[in-house]
Design a protein around this nucleic acid. Structure first.
Length: 595
RNA sequence: GGUCCGGUAGCUCAGUUGGAUAGAGCAGCAGCCUUCUAAGCUGCGGGUCAGGCGUUCGAGUCGCCUCCGGAUCACCA
């Protein structure tokens, strides 16, 4: 990397000039800001060196620049502004970079996977209701982070932990049974997850009616809840399920199958997948052995009512329950068990949990307990905590019907893509299938980019009006740039213009801006991986697309008369297309050849 | 109340270990298609980086305090 080269040569230069060895941390090398690009490509801040140079900032920069020219064949010239040394890189360096990579299909994403796997858990839905906007953010993040980690050279295992048991599933089952309609996805034509979700809502309604009657008859709210027959029936059903009552199990597995079939459709459309799916019904009993182990080693303790706890007050947290007084496990117990299970299954380098920030405390405690229990891999648990998705009218509330359904959302985005495309009238020669495919790519591209461009940690606002805007900092803008480049490349191919041979003797500023952006793609992948942040990739791709569009606008490519320049511009264009395609793929976004 | 996260232009968001004059997009205004795709490009206006104090040659970025918003602190998951 050129930044590292400059940095290490600068250390050498300081040694030669002032006889002092300075740490790399003292030498900040950065891209020169646009105002001073006429002087150089990269800048070095010399203020930290004044103590050792005992000279003015300008003089220090000048001496360092001269020494760098001697030491660094890649340095062509330099300029000094105040305490900034601006270094111009020789054209041959960029020529070599473009020549080496312009036809490399997997530029930037071709790191060979090595090491133990990184296990990424994401999605993790409940089977009592369909996927909504919040899940969409989760799924897109999990998938994208997995792609980015892979590209950066990690082995990745994507896992899903489906919450397929518990009182909430029993509620759907009970409502379905009580309705007596025997409604199925086949009989109703409803998507399975929607159908089951409807019964969950129905249960809620029936429950409210029952409660209202009880309260009207003079009971307090608490008394009414306690007296609710429906709730009692649901609890009874859960007990039956845990006792493996055949009839209950059958109903449970039938309805879950419906949900899975529905989820599969949504997952497939969203473009996400998993290497392994865990089901809580099979793992919810795990973790108790770990609790026993913790009791033996004295890390956990039992209270008089025989419930089991861990005392984390020394860590600034509270006491946390791990086993109820009746000996049953809680969420934390299960998660300890599934973490161990995953450690056994994968022998992972690290465990990543893509889970909303409302569970920050849970994961902090989970990690701490496992560390106290001496699990070496616990140090590598990372909670990829993301913020909530809010709507302009506030939070999504299923009870108030303000939940944005994942399938509906995709439908709307694709319909919008269709409307926009038809209005622009550029694809008259597409057949119906090609057109449908384009609407899908653009609609989903808009949705995915809109969500992934914001820093995962932050809460985000999902404004439907903004999300369907396809101009500016959007997925379709980047897709458009790609299609535009491909159009040029097709023309070049038709005219049998090759671009293997060119010499770079001079560079237009728009050319060098673009080349340097392209050069930074591999390190951007690494950084996005290190930060678990698709937003970094999204932001990079937007800047790149913008750089390309100004380049495209200011310089002609095919009409350039100088053959060498024409070839260079085609090579840059080709590499830009590759980077956009590879980068978008890291976000789970496809790019169209034409649009 | 304790802990954690956030507060940057009217709105939505960037701002890599502290570095040059804090940037985009949207919205508004004004231009650019006889030229490789105008889903594009160019220009204009718009800021007490919530506020204060401190560290530093240098702070949106680090530390402390205050204010505002959110999450969490269940024998729920």
């Amino acid at each position: 990397m050129i930044v590292q080269i400059i940095s290490s040569k600068a250390i050498e230069a300081v040694q030669n000039l002032f006889g002092v060895s300075v740490p790399a941390s003292q030498l900040a090398v950065q891209r020169t800001i646009p105002s001073f690009r006429n002087q150089g490509d990269f800048s070095l801040v010399v203020f930290p060196l004044l103590k050792v140079s005992r000279k003015s900032p300008e003089e220090t920069a000048r001496l360092l620049g001269e020494e760098l020219l001697r030491l660094m064949p890649e340095a062509e010239s330099f300029g000094v502004v105040k305490g900034y040394l601006n270094v111009r890189i020789v054209k041959g360096f960029w020529e070599g970079f473009v020549k080496d990579n312009h036809s490399t299909h997997f530029f930037g994403v071709d790191n060979q996977p090595s090491g133990k796997p990184v296990v990424v858990e994401y999605s993790s839905p409940n089977t009592n209701k369909p996927l909504h906007l919040g899940h969409v953010r989760n799924n897109l993040l999990g998938y994208s982070v997995s792609q980015i980690l892979k590209a950066s050279g990690k082995n990745v295992a994507k896992v899903n932990l489906v919450n397929d048991r518990g009182i909430h599933i029993c509620k759907s089952m009970l409502a379905w049974k009580l309705s007596g309609l025997n409604e199925t996805p086949q009989s109703s034509g409803k998507k399975g997850d929607k159908l089951v979700g409807d019964y969950y809502v129905l249960f809620d309604k029936m429950c409210k009616t029952e409660l209202k009657e009880l309260i009207d008859s003079g009971k307090t709210e608490d008394e009414a809840t306690a007296a609710s027959k429906l709730m009692a029936q649901a609890r009874e059903m859960l007990l039956k399920w845990e006792a493996r009552d055949p009839e209950t199990l059958q109903l449970w597995s039938m309805m879950n199958e419906w949900v899975y079939a529905g989820f599969d459709v949504t997952y497939k459309r969203l473009g996400v997948d998993f290497d392994k799916i865990y089901h809580e019904s099979q793992t919810y009993l795990f973790g108790k052995e770990i609790v026993e182990e913790g009791l033996k080693s004295g890390i956990l303790f039992r209270k008089d009512d025989s419930s089991v706890w861990i005392d984390l007050t020394a860590e600034g947290l509270d006491e946390k329950l791990l086993l109820r007084s009746d000996g049953t496990s809680v969420y934390m117990t299960q998660d300890l068990g599934t973490a161990q299970l995953r450690a056994n299954d994968f022998d992972p380098e690290s465990l990543i949990y893509v889970v909303g920030n409302e569970q920050n405390y849970h994961f902090e405690v989970l990690k701490l307990i496992l560390q106290k229990l001496g699990r070496p891999w616990a140090d590598h648990i990372y909670h990829l905590s993301y913020g909530m998705v809010e709507l302009p009218e506030g939070k999504m509330k299923s009870r108030e019907g303000t939940v944005v359904d994942a399938d509906d959302l995709m439908d709307e985005m694709i319909a919008t893509a269709r409307a926009m495309t038809e209005e622009l009238g550029k694809i008259e020669d597409f057949d119906s299938d090609e057109a449908q495919e384009l609407y899908r790519i653009v609609g989903l591209g808009a949705l995915k980019y809109f969500i992934l461009k914001v820093d995962p940690r932050k809460n985000m606002l999902f404004n439907p009006a903004d999300s369907i805007d396809f101009n500016g900092n959007t997925g379709p803008f980047i897709q458009y740039t790609y299609a535009r480049i491909k159009s040029v490349l097709r023309k070049a191919e038709a005219e049998d213009i090759r671009f293997e041979h060119f010499e770079v003797n001079e560079l237009h500023s728009k050319e060098s801006d673009l080349i340097i952006s392209l050069y930074e793609f591999p390190s951007t992948v690494k950084q996005a991986a290190a930060d678990y942040s698709p937003a970094i990739m999204a932001s990079y791709l937007y800047d790149l697309a913008r750089d390309y569009n100004t380049f495209y606008h200011e310089l002609s490519i095919l009409k350039e008369e100088n053959e060498s320049k024409k070839a260079l511009r085609l090579a840059i264009s080709s590499l830009t297309a590759t980077v956009i395609k590879n980068g978008m793929q890291l976000l789970g976004i496809e790019v169209p050849e034409r649009m």
